[in-house]
Computed example of a mutant assay.
Amino acid sequence: MADQLGGIHHLTAITADASGNLHFYTKVLGLRLVKKTVNQDDTSAYHLFYADGKASPGSDVTFFDWPVGRERRGTHSIARTALRVGSEASLSWWRDHLRAAGVKPGEVAEMTGHTSFDFEDPEGQRLRLVNDEGSGDSNPWTGSSIPQEHQIRGLGPITLSVPDLKPTAAILTQVLNMKELRSHPSGKGDSATYVFAMGPGGPAAELHVAVEPHLPAAGQGAGGVHHVAFRTPTVEMLHRWTERLASFKLPSSGEVERYYFRSLYFREPNGILFEIATDGPGFAVDEPLESLGERLSLPPFLEARRASIESRLKPLQ
């Protein structure tokens, strides 16, 4: 049997307001700040990781804090990030909760096969809450402001926007061994959304591809997404994915040690950045699980520069 990806690992987006971002994702959405670190390629910028109570792979939404303008929306991009809850009752609870927090939620409806509603964060990050009907694991955080039965369970599906399906679909199916499941017409001319599934299937392992040839190309900025990462269990499996990309002559970063996981980056033909990341060793490798995110964490190769790095970071609170 061909190697299979395990689902969505994480999604990394962009904020220009780290303090406001921290407030929204921890106080309004109730996620746990599981790692406060810096962008390993640009140590002047925070890299914030929000996840479930156990910092599980597949639950973390991460943000680079960059002083940039707003995203210019368009195609050739990751267009919407879905977060999973466990029931239709939770969707109703969340609509009331978001309204009380000053957020305008959309209507609950079936969208691309799942009961969902859309909303945006204060910087225009496009989000969706999806009823996953209790599928998969749930690791609530006792420190969350959200009742345990309504807490966000993890990521997925993630929606891409591309002008042309064929080259992206070829990478998803022929290289990454995803399965095309179904399509959903959008009602806008030749636009439609195609659903692809990774090994285990279900909302946590789906990638949705919206074909939108009428849109201009997106411009990256605050409120936009930088990349999406897919799960592989071990470093040995990551080696196999590295070899597989090379066998298709796909340019890649080569394997990169991110300390909390090991990664491989490449772009699909419509220019969207993909990552394959290992499930381990995880965020508890350098601080206790019970106190994740309470101090600035730095990988060993940056530890000697801690004083200099901390001096250039603005306070989050």
Rank of each mutant, 00 (worst) to 15 (best):
F248W: 15
I78R: 00
V211N: 02
E133M: 11
A100F: 04
A218L: 03
R240H: 15
R153Q: 07
D190T: 12
D96L: 15
I152F: 00
S116D: 06
A204R: 04
E180L: 10
A100M: 07
R84P: 04
H227C: 07
S92G: 13
W94K: 04
D52W: 12
E268R: 01
V108T: 14
T168P: 11
I78S: 00
L264T: 14
V256Y: 13
V28D: 08
R126F: 02
G106P: 04
H76V: 07
W93N: 02
L31P: 10
V68R: 06
P147D: 02
G69F: 08
G223D: 11
A79H: 12
Y50T: 02
G20W: 05
E236V: 08
M178G: 09
F274T: 12
G6K: 04
L165S: 05
F63Y: 02
E133L: 12
D41I: 13
T15K: 00
G202M: 03
S161E: 02
L313Q: 08
S116T: 15
G271A: 03
W93S: 03
Y50G: 01
P300N: 01
T242W: 13
E275L: 03
L98S: 09
S145K: 07
S144E: 06
G224S: 05
L29Q: 11
V38C: 06
F196S: 04
R153L: 07
H226Q: 13
R312E: 10
L316C: 09
A89D: 10
Y265N: 07
V34K: 15
S56C: 10
H208E: 09
G282R: 07
T278I: 03
T159S: 12
N21S: 08
R231P: 12
A55Q: 04
Q220C: 10
P213H: 00
G219R: 12
S186V: 09
H227E: 12
L165Q: 04
E71V: 15
L11P: 10
T234S: 05
F63H: 00
Q148A: 15
R267Y: 12
S56A: 15
D121P: 08
G58C: 01
P233F: 10
D132S: 03
A13C: 08
E71H: 15
L176Y: 03
L83G: 01
R240D: 13
E180S: 10
R153Y: 05
A169L: 08
W66S: 03
D3A: 14
L207E: 00
A13I: 05
T142Y: 15
N131V: 04
D41T: 13
L155E: 05
S253E: 13
R128I: 02
R32F: 02
R73H: 11
L5V: 02
P300V: 09
L48T: 01
S44D: 15
P185F: 05
G74L: 09
K179T: 15
A218Q: 05
S19F: 12
E212F: 01
H76K: 07
Q151H: 10
Y46H: 11
G69H: 07
A13W: 03
M1T: 15
G293W: 10
L160G: 03
V225T: 06
N39A: 13
T112A: 14
P67N: 01
A246M: 06
S145W: 00
V211K: 02
G219V: 14
I158T: 03
E268I: 02
P157C: 02
L83F: 08
A217W: 11
G134A: 04
G189Q: 13
I152T: 05
I14M: 11
E180R: 12
V162G: 03
M111N: 13
G86R: 01
L129T: 01
A222W: 12
